[in-house]
Design a protein around this nucleic acid. Sequence first.
DNA 1: AATTAGCACTCAAGGAGTCGGAGTGCTAAC
DNA 2: GTTAGCACTCCGACTCCTTGAGTGCTAATT
Lengths: 350, 350
Amino acid sequence: MLTEVIDMLTERQLLLLQVIIDDFIDTAHPVGSRALAKKGDIPYSAATIRNEMADLEELGFLEKMHSSSGRIPSEKGYRYYVDHLIKPISNNKYNGIVSKLITEGIFEFEQVVQMSAEILSDLTSYTAIILGPEVFETKLKQLQIVPLTSQTAVAILITNTGHVEHRSISLPEAINASDLEKLVNIINEKLVGLPVVKLQDMFYTEIAQIMKQYLDDYEKSMQYLKAIFATDYPVKVYVSGKSNMLMLPEFNDINKVRSFYSLMDREEEIVNLLKDSTPGIEVTIGNENEIEAIKDFSLITSSLHHGKEQMGTIALLGPKRMEYRKVISLLKGLSNEMTNTLYMWYKNDD
Amino acid sequence: MLTEVIDMLTERQLLLLQVIIDDFIDTAHPVGSRALAKKGDIPYSAATIRNEMADLEELGFLEKMHSSSGRIPSEKGYRYYVDHLIKPISNNKYNGIVSKLITEGIFEFEQVVQMSAEILSDLTSYTAIILGPEVFETKLKQLQIVPLTSQTAVAILITNTGHVEHRSISLPEAINASDLEKLVNIINEKLVGLPVVKLQDMFYTEIAQIMKQYLDDYEKSMQYLKAIFATDYPVKVYVSGKSNMLMLPEFNDINKVRSFYSLMDREEEIVNLLKDSTPGIEVTIGNENEIEAIKDFSLITSSLHHGKEQMGTIALLGPKRMEYRKVISLLKGLSNEMTNTLYMWYKNDD
DNA sequence: AATTAGCACTCAAGGAGTCGGAGTGCTAAC
DNA sequence: GTTAGCACTCCGACTCCTTGAGTGCTAATT
């Protein structure tokens, strides 16, 4: 079946398509037959190239901006390019981003992720987006409550991945220092090792029971204390390199800039965009994207999985005219490495 | 002296200048004499207005974009406007941003600051920048070290303002759980209550002494442990509403967009910009700014002080054509409120 | 049969003219 | 001191033209 598709095109058309797309990715200018012939990559005259181009256009792989412009790749063209023409690229160029970070003494997963995003966007000059790692599977290592004043305190949750979550709470009047200590002990005893996402439920069932015995003013105190686990743990999004995009000729149109940045302000949409990706690299080109605002971008995602559980997503957003070759191999490398790191992380988890 | 300056201009010129600047702030279009006369704000003919405008231009308060355009305010014009024409505005329109946040149960200073920035930018549609609160004066409430694996741990510093700072460290081989506990106890005993900025020094002098007695492999262990206090506590910058700027007609020029966003990417420059402001509201217009990239913006800063110590800065960055009236009263209100809040915070500090 | 050369045609981009509108400065009249 | 009137200026939008890079098609060449 795969060969079928390839057979649709002659050897020469394949070569041509490849060269044209490469050229356009490089320069952002429509590619003309004459210019191509002169470049010397192709041993045919401009006329021949013209004929082939016409065929490729008829087949839907190329298109023109107007009747006498050169050709630019259509989305179908890019799709074909991504699926069939950039296979043989080895990803040996990848040199461990994560391992470098770790040798620099960065152990906290979130931080590793964040810095990876930065490196990724620097390396590609596109916008890097990293989701998660989701808190699914992340387990409570320890809870602490540190009183600040008589009415306020900070609750600190530490997870097995080295993530620290903290929030300020107000303290119930009825509680004193030793009560608080007891309470924290109970909570730790009962909840440590449990997945963070389940903490809220467990607090209501397990802990509430026990607290009834200890706390005088039970009802009221609960009021205050539930705040510790109240917020849903937000999926964290790290976006890096937004202003890289401004350098692209595609962004000479101010309205594109506006719509791009307004998307970037709507964090939830980005999360939705990346939330449900399947394992492996996935390339979505232009209108293949569901969100209006990125219909003339391409998005390349690679999701991190630990077992069946999705732990996060690494993505690069750039123009349709993306350097797919480079980006895909980078992303493959990075997500492999991250998955391994994840694995190691959870192995140490006892 | 002040009256002297005011006396430079006639009553009518004052009125005119005011109306012209108001109009330009509103519409971003150069203001013409005919249009002004028609609006009915001014009981003089277009010709009279023209004459006055010519005088105001000669005095340097107005300028033209080209020989037959309407007038726009010069920087000197804005300066005069800000210094003398918007005084009588009461700031009774301000309705406690911070107090609202606090009643919503937000106690941590950093979070209050961050959300204030968001509200501020929403309210003004300019870019809000908040610096700090600086960690000067912030004191250590508690230090904790939570081991994750046998080689790694998280160190958590909690300050009296409810700020939580955490970093991942690697553990020295020679240390075991009970050693670690002892160590943490020592550190807490000696360092709690000290200003966070002094911790690093104290660690080397006070703590190092004591540790020599307890730790076998002293030298090596110090290697690892100093990481806890190693990083300088970075001044935190909260920027909100960058994309608001894109809506301004001033930003139809893509190059301005580029230079603006590239400034926003260089956090240190922003910090430098705001670091050394004197108490009170300060307005810097256009070329009065030192940084090239904001020479056609205006920046309004208001610094938070606690006693003599600068605790942070609230700022709004917008076009020279800013709604100074509104912005200044807002900023006054907010910084008053924040200063008071700061004061309360530190009162509770024992 | 495949390739190439040649030619007529198309379109975008950029420069040169034209025109109307909104503004100005100046002078003379009120 | 104020206003009306008039000549003048400049921007921006519009049209017209030219140029260059491209195309499609046909006929000649290999």
